[in-house]
């Protein structure tokens, strides 16, 4: 089927063009061009916005703004985002990272979406359709979204507060068995004051482990302190099954990897 590409200078124009049922936004193209190559007939028009601001990484005070077209490679290289580099580096191989965008990762179905897991743990806010919404809400409603995502924002975490792990069978590049992001705030004595834990491959898209978050409050990050979180981290999960791992396997190893991440 003939395909075409429509480029627009502004996000607003691209958003308007995206309302057509046969249109799909083109980010880095690693998923959407692949879909076209595989004969996906649900769209025949790629739409993109060329506004250069979409490629900007801005840090104002403690707030980070990543334009939707920022690539994983840009994040890996950014000196102030070293804490996020492991999550960006988790996406594909070197060529994929030069193409894969932040915006596209927010839409990537499991087993993809490793970077979105990190953003969910960070409690990012997403600029979409002229509004700013919590990433939790964005992920829950993304299938219905027909707007362009223009940027994400989050606060720089305190030193050591953010942790990320992607578990895969093939190193250095492999599809995730699962991925976990955690943002943990501790008091002076080391007891957990607040926690956000995000999981990848535990549903069709990144999800929070809310029971485990709750179980961590007031606890120390010790084998005993995290036992409650490890015991409840699977609550509400519906892991995917794919050639890499079965849902059963993913559920079995999830507490093990959460424990390793929290004791790191």
């Amino acid at each position: 089927m003939p395909l075409s590409l429509r480029s627009f200078g502004t996000v607003e124009e691209a958003s308007a063009a995206l309302k057509a049922p046969n249109a799909r936004y083109l980010g880095g193209g690693t998923l959407v061009v692949r879909a076209a190559n595989e004969g996906d007939l649900t769209f025949d028009t790629f739409v993109r916005a060329t506004d250069a601001r979409l490629r900007n990484i801005e840090i104002t005070g403690s707030t980070v703004t990543l334009g939707a077209s920022v690539t994983m490679a840009q994040i890996v290289k950014h000196p102030a985002l070293a804490f996020l580099a492991p999550a960006a580096r988790a996406v594909g191989g070197p060529a994929i990272r030069n193409m894969a965008s932040v915006g596209g990762n927010l839409f990537a179905p499991a087993p993809y979406g490793d970077f979105a897991v990190a953003l969910l743990a960070l409690g990012a806010r997403v600029d979409v359709g002229g509004k700013t919404v919590d990433i939790d809400r964005f992920l829950a409603t993304r299938d219905e979204s027909r707007d362009v995502v223009s940027a994400v924002h989050f606060e720089l975490p305190k030193e050591g507060a953010f942790r990320f792990a992607k578990v895969s069978r093939v190193k250095p590049k492999g599809v995730a068995v699962l991925s976990i992001g955690a943002l943990i705030e501790q008091d002076g004595a080391g007891a957990v004051k607040a926690a956000r834990i995000a999981l990848g491959c535990m549903a069709d898209r990144p999800m929070r482990a809310k029971a485990a978050e709750k179980a961590l409050i007031g606890s120390m990050l010790t084998e005993d302190g995290i036992a409650g979180a490890a015991a409840t981290v699977g609550e509400g999960t519906e892991p995917i099954t794919d050639p890499v791992a079965s849902a059963w396997y993913r559920a079995e190893v999830l507490p093990v990897h959460l424990r390793r991440l929290l004791l790191k």
């Binding site: 193209g29 690693t30 061009v33 190559n37 490679a73 060529a95 994929i96 030069n98």
Partner: peptide, 20 residues
């Protein structure tokens, strides 16, 4: 990776890059 090329100095996959 068989289609890997370098575009403006960056490694890319030609099969997932639109020509235009």
């Amino acid at each position: 990776g068989a289609c890997t090329v370098i575009i403006d100095g960056e490694l890319r996959l030609a099969c997932l890059t639109l020509a235009e």
